[in-house]
């Protein structure tokens, strides 16, 4: 039971990170109907920027951890958002009304660019950082000596995720921008006729998605204590799987899918085998889609005849 509780905590933390990335996929899909294959790499860039800005801040003599973390968070969100904006501008906007596979391949190309850009600019080796947020709480000490722990970093990840989700939900449901986004999702031509700046709204979608990915990247850095240029691929595929599992286009679905993938992975590793955790996640995706072809919370496609 204790072991189970511990895995549940670990799974939820991992799931939160996946969920944050998955939102970026689902938002872009909802509004422009394309798979942003470069999004995993945007997450990786976010991790790198967090790492670099952290190093710089520490070396200039800042010591207050909360202040450092806040600045790192803001810097990595801002710069990564700029990456999101630029990618959309260069690789996707010219193909907006083109046929469907072209932007997808452009995105795959962009993903290669980002992966190799960071390999070239920061080197191929894994970049470790010492634990920044340490300590934690012992929730329960079992008879067999097994201890259920909740570390501070886990609390930070989950709370950050919840706060961001709240902010994000408010943004989509209550603000002008959110309304514009929902309008563009329904019908871009009509939205444009009614005075919505479609280009700007789509740009903002990429900006927000990238900013959330940056947060995920920073959380990943804090939680695992390392980044490398290739981490975007695997995390990206997992998050995309999460988005599809939840029902692509659905924001709560993305979070739910993220949590599901995080939990599946953690529990599978804990009870069966670490090697096959990804196989388990992908297999469950396939099984779910057989029975729910549009994911857990996706809108069923109505075929008009």
């Amino acid at each position: 039971m204790d072991y189970f509780a511990q895995q549940l905590i670990n799974g939820l933390v991992l799931g939160s990170i996946y969920g944050l990335i998955a939102i970026g996929y689902t938002m872009v899909y909802g509004i422009v109907g394309m798979i942003n294959f470069a999004h995993g790499d945007v997450f990786m860039i976010g991790g790198f920027i967090a790492l670099i800005s952290f190093l710089v801040l520490v070396s200039v003599g800042l010591t207050a951890v909360p202040v450092i973390l806040l600045i790192v968070l803001l810097v990595s969100m801002a710069i990564t958002a700029l990456y999101g904006w630029t990618i959309e501008r260069i690789a996707y906007r010219p193909l907006r009304h083109s046929f469907r596979l072209a932007p997808m391949l452009s995105a795959i190309g962009m993903s290669f660019v980002l992966t190799n850009f960071s390999q070239v600019s920061q080197g191929a080796r894994v970049k470790p950082v010492p634990p920044i947020i340490t300590g934690g709480y012992t929730l329960h000490e079992g008879d067999g000596g097994f201890v259920v722990q909740l570390s501070n970093i886990q609390i930070v990840v989950v709370i950050t995720t919840i706060v961001l989700l709240g902010l994000f939900t408010w943004l989509v449901s209550r603000t002008r921008l959110g309304r514009d986004m929902r309008a563009c999702e329904q019908d871009q031509t009509m939205a444009a006729l009614l005075g919505v700046d479609v280009d700007r709204t789509i740009s903002m979608t990429f900006v927000i998605g990238a900013a959330l990915a940056a947060v995920a990247g920073m959380m990943y850095l804090l939680y695992y204590g390392l980044v490398d240029f290739f981490m975007g691929f695997v995390a990206g595929i997992k998050a995309f799987t999460a988005a599809v599992l939840g029902g692509i286009g659905s924001l709560p679905g993305a979070m739910l899918g993220g949590l599901a993938i995080g939990l599946i992975e953690t529990f599978w590793s804990a009870y069966f085998s670490v090697e096959y955790k990804d196989v388990a996640a992908f297999s469950i995706l396939i099984v779910v889609l057989i029975f729910l072809p549009t994911g857990l919370l996706g809108r069923p496609e109505v075929e008009k005849v």
Binding site: I35, I237, T241, I248, E275, V279, F282, S283, L285, P293
Partner: peptide
């Protein structure tokens, strides 16, 4: 399994299938 799937659902399942095969080959 993918008969009923469309578009991007099909894309991710085929991608997942490719990864599953590779992971099984590794492990």
């Amino acid at each position: 399994p993918v008969l009923r799937l469309r578009g991007d659902y099909l894309a991710i399942v085929t991608l997942a299938f490719g990864e599953i095969i590779r992971l099984v080959l590794i492990n």
